[in-house]
Amino acid sequence: MSTATIASQQDTPSLKARLLGTPSVGPLLVLVAFCIIFALTNPRFLATQNISIILQQTVIIGTLAIGQTLVILTAGIDLAVGAICVLGTIVAGKLVNLGYDPVFSMGFAILLCTGAGLAAGSLIAGLRLPPFIVTLGILGILTAALRLISEGGAFPVRDPFLAWTGNTMKVGGFVLTYGILIMLALYGFVWYLLNQTKWGRHVYAIGNNPEAARLVGIPVRRHLLSVYLLAGFIYGIAAWLALGRIPNADPNAMQTANLDSITAVVIGGTSLFGGRGGLIGTLIGALIVGVLRNGLTLAGIDPLWQDLVTGILVIIAVALDQMSRRRN
């Protein structure tokens, strides 16, 4: 092959190569397949009202999964997702109930969640502790501390600003909550960061090969810190969305949020080994879980089956990831 042939080759890969190289195609096919099955077996599934419900039910896990995706892309894992989010709801609720300005209360709560992310990041990047252990520790500390603060029980949060994200608007027959729109905006923002900026490129590089990232001059530790910081901020926003869905601050809530967010990420095709995958996959993954739960509920199937099917999907997703890695 001569130099001329190289020049004539396309810069961008072919459509087929792109589809095969895009990890979100598989999950998308699964999502479409589930939608078709549920739509055929139950006409109510595709009703606009039901689609709104699915989206609303996906909002919290869908938002938490954005932060989880960032962390997993760096080859980490975040087990404090739910606990940090609950921290946000309790702090905001407590402050508002004490008579503080609601905007200040929510802002302070989000800041605190960002701080929790920063703390996790400092321990992981600064002391080079494993993310699994650090976030497990933070989960334990926060869970206990929050139960102490709230004296063990849940309390109602009746403030229009804190509940604002649960308000609805109609878009062409669809009832959308502001929470759904905020979630989608966050997906758009973080997608841009990951795919169109140097910052995102370096997140992938660090997850792929931290040593190579260091050798080309990427400040790996500072970059990891920024990832956990942003994740913490996103969990704080998720806390606001959670108060919009259920105006109740409960220290015992979101106990399955860690695993649910990891499930969405993994089903969405992001590798637990880091450096591969993306945010579109995570959104699809979160929707798959939402559709599955909704569809099976509509079909009147025991909720335990939902967990069982979700579990199978996770194992299939991880097996596929392993197989593709081995092939390479």
Binding site: R201, Y204, A205, N208, N209, A212
Partner: peptide, 19 residues
């Protein structure tokens, strides 16, 4: 030991750290 990010494309690796 090739200092590369294997999942990123050739252009990304060429410009890694100097995008």
């Amino acid at each position: 030991d090739l200092a590369m990010a294997p999942a990123l494309d050739i252009a990304s690796n060429l410009f890694l750290g100097r995008e």
